[in-house]
């Protein structure tokens, strides 16, 4: 190396800020700025059908004054959290089993093909998928027709319930969760499974004591992802859940659909923004919980 071409110490290199700028800029423009605007807008008011930048906590006072009475935004929020958590549990179980099937039962050279087949729905329209599910699950749909042919006369009521909402969401989440869990399972050290088997563990014991603990990080990540996406989704609840689908909690709409209805019917964007801000705060809380769970799983693996 000649004199004059000395590489500067890494902490003085311009490469670092140059490479950091795009992700930081992206984060600021597409996450921080819109989020900050949403939060600020929630504290503004509407006068003569126009937004006025005048600070007020009126929107939040109004929303929380009828959180569990009249408009019952709170019950809608509880319904959303309940549906999001249960959907994610079912989605993770379903996708975990599917990913296990691909990793452990399919010869390696065919695994990519099966993975592509499993995530194929990702390339079709979500709305079209929901309408297709309507045709299948409706009272006069394909499923009840088949059951009728088999002698079961009482139709299954699935559409316009939260079971319908969950089915649509699981189909939506599946391709992504399958990839997450496939990557997790493909990295499980086979030698450890074989060692457990040779030391006398049954298949079930090997599964519970080796495979599950080693895929805990992926499971936690998939679960967290599923909860957050399900919580924010509005379409499945509207098209398969009927907007007010019944769960054991009651016949409450999802919180996301309450936000949408507020936007569509009320010339008061600040109140809609306040409703959305509450949702974002819950989502951030979910992210924090998911992060901590993932962190704990990571430390246990280390």
């Amino acid at each position: 190396m000649t004199e004059g071409s000395v590489i500067p110490p890494s902490n003085r290199s311009l490469l670092k800020p140059a490479f950091l700028a795009p992700p930081v800029g992206y984060y600021l423009i597409f996450f921080v700025a819109p989020l900050a605007f949403l939060v600020v807008l929630g504290f503004w008011i509407v006068r003569d059908y126009q937004i006025v930048a005048e600070f007020s906590v009126g929107n939040y006072v109004d929303i929380f004054s009828q959180f569990f009475s009249r408009s019952r935004f709170g019950w809608a929020l509880v319904q959303s959290i309940y549906i999001a958590v249960t959907t994610s549990v079912f989605a993770v179980i379903f996708c975990y089993l599917l990913a296990m099937g691909i990793v452990f039962c399919i010869p390696e050279r065919y695994q990519r093909l099966f993975l592509v087949l499993a995530i194929l729905p990702f390339w079709s329209s979500y709305i079209l998928r929901l309408f297709a599910w309507q045709l299948i699950l409706a009272q006069k749909g394909v499923l009840n027709h088949v059951l009728g042919e088999l002698g079961l006369d009482d139709p299954l009521i699935i559409t316009n319930t939260q079971i319908g909402t969950r089915i649509g969401l699981i189909h939506y989440l599946a391709p992504i969760l399958i990839i997450i869990l496939y990557v997790t399972l493909i990295n499980v050290n086979r030698n450890l499974i074989e060692a457990a088997r040779e030391l006398g563990a049954t298949r079930l014991q090997a599964f519970w004591r080796v495979i599950v603990p080693l895929s805990r990080l992926g499971l936690v990540f998939a679960f967290g992802f599923g909860v957050i996406v399900s919580f924010g989704d509005v379409l499945s609840g509207l098209l398969l859940g009927g907007g007010i689908g019944r769960s054991w909690l009651g016949s409450y709409p999802l919180y996301s659909s309450m936000i949408m209805a507020d936007y569509n019917s009320y010339t008061n964007l600040p109140r809609t923004a306040a409703l959305a801000t509450i949702m974002v705060i819950i989502m951030v809380a979910m992210l924090v919980v998911a992060y901590r769970m993932a962190d704990r799983a990571k430390r246990q693996l280390a």
Partner: peptide, 20 residues
């Protein structure tokens, strides 16, 4: 008595066709 709240006409049309 209410089964569903449709966000648009299409959802309700579909529900009427499907018998819901």
């Amino acid at each position: 008595q209410v089964n569903m709240f449709g966000s648009g006409a299409q959802a309700i049309v579909q529900a009427m066709i499907n018998g819901d």
